[in-house]
Amino acid sequence: MPTTFTLNGKPVTSDAPGNAMLLWVLRERLGMTGTRFGCGVGECGACTVHLDGDPVHACRLRLSRVAGREITTIEGLSKDRSHALQQAWIEEEVPQCGYCQSGQLMQAASLLAANPSPTREEIVSHMDGVLCRCGTYGRIIRAIERASAVNTAPAGRTR
């Protein structure tokens, strides 16, 4: 039975089996390859997407579970890399190989949405489940702090 859900603001229907993992449906059937396959068991966070605004592992989320709900992927974070985090990621030159960075950004976006001015400890605690092999963690922290400062700066004083 086809499954209908909202993907990055648009309704989509997939006739993949209901027990198919959302990750592969997104990547191989819906052309949204920005969400990455890293471990398949919810241990690395490379596949992090938002389900009704909350970060989830697409590799462990069955298609049937997203029926009627809203999924946001990295492709939906902004149309033009204009999200404060994406800008901060570029300014801090965060990515190296880049493979984990979609997951890092989606995880970070869920943090700032709930907590616009996180402390360093809050950042680390929220981000700790998303692995990066290149060792970009320090830059990720700085980029989140930068985006947070931009978002919370009074109007007219943004950088």
């Binding site: 086809p2 309704p11 229907t13 997939s14 006739d15 993949a16 449906v25 819906l30 052309g31 949204m32």
Partner: peptide, 10 residues
């Protein structure tokens, strides 16, 4: 290719 409207996936 982006999912435009109701794309059928199978």
């Amino acid at each position: 290719p982006s999912p435009e409207g109701h794309s059928s996936s199978g």
